[in-house]
């Protein structure tokens, strides 16, 4: 894909982009969004994930299921590689808002500024927000 390397741009193309905007544990938004990613990949579709807003907290390392007895989403995130889902992105601004740096996160996602996120959305056929 030797095109579109604009400044702060993102040239990743794919079939499905999941925009994940909720933190884990407090609701099922993240889990049910990730389920679509896994199903899409199982159906041989190129799936990308963009963690936006409080969704970046999904990637915070050292999480446990905790007192509520929920499964948590880390086991699912660890399975992404097995499903060949390796196009992972985070909103750079959200990282800064939560005082996070790359070393705090699992899976080494790529940070994107606004222009990069716009490119990412533009280059996917189906965009679903959870």
């Amino acid at each position: 894909m030797p095109y579109l390397e604009e400044q702060n741009g993102c040239s990743t193309k794919g079939d499905i982009l999941l925009v994940l905007r909720h933190a884990p544990h407090g609701s099922s938004w993240l889990r049910e969004g990730l389920d679509i990613a896994l199903v899409g990949a199982a159906f041989d579709r190129d799936v990308s994930l963009l963690f936006m807003g409080e969704g970046v907290l999904a990637l915070l390392s050292g999480q446990q299921a905790g007192a509520l007895g929920q499964k948590g989403t880390h086991p699912t995130l660890q399975m992404l590689e097995m499903y060949d889902i390796d196009a992972l992105f985070v909103e750079q601004r959200a990282m800064e808002r939560y005082g996070l740096v790359q070393e705090d996160l699992i899976l080494a996602p790529q940070g994107l500024e606004e222009a990069g996120m716009a490119d990412l959305i533009k280059h996917h056929d189906l965009v679903l927000t959870f």
Binding site: I16, D35, V39, F43, D125, L126, L128, F130
Partner: peptide, 19 residues
């Protein structure tokens, strides 16, 4: 959920309500 993936990619528009 595979049906949702098929719908989203097969139709011209998938409109979401309730996010």
């Amino acid at each position: 959920l595979g049906q949702l993936v098929d719908l989203g990619l097969g139709c011209d528009r998938l409109i979401t309500f309730g996010t």
